[in-house]
């Protein structure tokens, strides 16, 4: 498929000899304007790739923090339509930072796959992570997305054994997201040594860059992951900053402050 902003970003970072910092936050959380400010501030705070959560009422694979973020988003009018609007507005000022939408299939299915892909391309979306679309359901969205020039990024987990790995890698592009523990988002961090062992196994099956997430909360943890993976993903810790903020302005500054700490951790590690 054609090269996306994601492909270009990972190629550039590889040449620079460092890993990527991937940040996640929920669209429209706590409201549209605040989340737009967060989004616009993230590249400056060191986010190399930005995952934007699409709110859903029933996020089966998420822990309490991201569930709550989705509900805050929906309560203030969040929807797939205004998530795409958010990306369009962001793109007016940034045509380089890759944007990945992450969420569940039903809102996309309700929007209509064809219309969604058309509007997502127009808005400047580069990749999709749809938690409840395993490779068994590739014909739903994965293959149409590829054809539209959008990366379909798949999750691999500790339960993804040798037998399963080829199915996970097949048709996926952009990067592979290794969820480092079996569990929901917000769970405790795994041992870096265990992650390293798993990555060794996965690298035999794919040349895609591998991002590692789940449980990373601080800069030093992000640095540990940056040593062994191509990217470190942080979500829950950033989303909790929104939840704990006393005002929308504080939400923006608090998220960006943590993003800076995390990206500094990732950038402190140089590889050959």
């Amino acid at each position: 498929m054609i090269e996306t902003r994601i492909d270009r970003r990972f190629a550039k970072l590889k040449a620079e000899g460092r890993a990527a910092f991937v940040s996640y936050f929920m669209a429209n959380d706590p409201d549209y304007d605040t989340s737009l400010k967060i989004l616009k501030g993230l590249p400056g705070a060191g986010a190399d790739v930005i995952e934007v959560g699409m709110p859903f009422t029933d996020p089966m694979a998420d822990g309490a923090a991201i569930q709550a973020a989705g509900l805050r988003s929906l309560a203030s009018g969040g929807s797939l339509r205004n998530t795409l609007k958010l990306i369009s507005e962001f793109r007016e000022g940034d045509n380089e930072t890759p944007i990945v939408l992450m969420g569940y299939y039903n809102p996309v299915y309700a929007y209509g796959v064809e219309d969604f892909l058309k509007d997502a391309v127009k808005a400047g979306v580069d990749g999709l992570i749809i938690v409840d679309l395993p490779s068994e359901e590739d014909s739903e969205l994965c293959i149409p997305a590829r054809e539209a020039g959008i990366n379909f990024i798949r999750l691999a987990t500790p339960t993804t054994d040798e037998k399963r790995l080829p199915a996970v890698v097949n048709n996926s592009s952009g990067f592979l997201y290794y969820v480092s523990i079996a569990g929901t988002t917000g769970a405790a961090a795994p041992e870096p040594a265990d992650v390293a062992k798993a990555l060794e196994r996965i690298r035999k099956a794919t040349d895609l860059p591998i991002a590692v997430g789940f449980g990373i909360r601080r800069g030093d943890q992000a640095a540990e992951i940056a040593k062994i993976a191509d990217a470190a993903v942080v979500g829950t810790a950033l989303v909790e900053r929104v939840a704990n903020a006393a005002s929308p302005d504080e939400a923006v500054s608090s998220v960006l402050e943590l993003a800076k700490e995390l990206s500094a951790g990732v950038q402190s590690v140089t590889k050959n």
Binding site: A61, P134, E136, E137, L155, A156, D161, R164, A182, G183
Partner: peptide
């Protein structure tokens, strides 16, 4: 169909 998280697929 089988619309579940990858963790559960195996």
């Amino acid at each position: 169909g089988q619309f579940v998280a990858e963790t559960l697929m195996p």
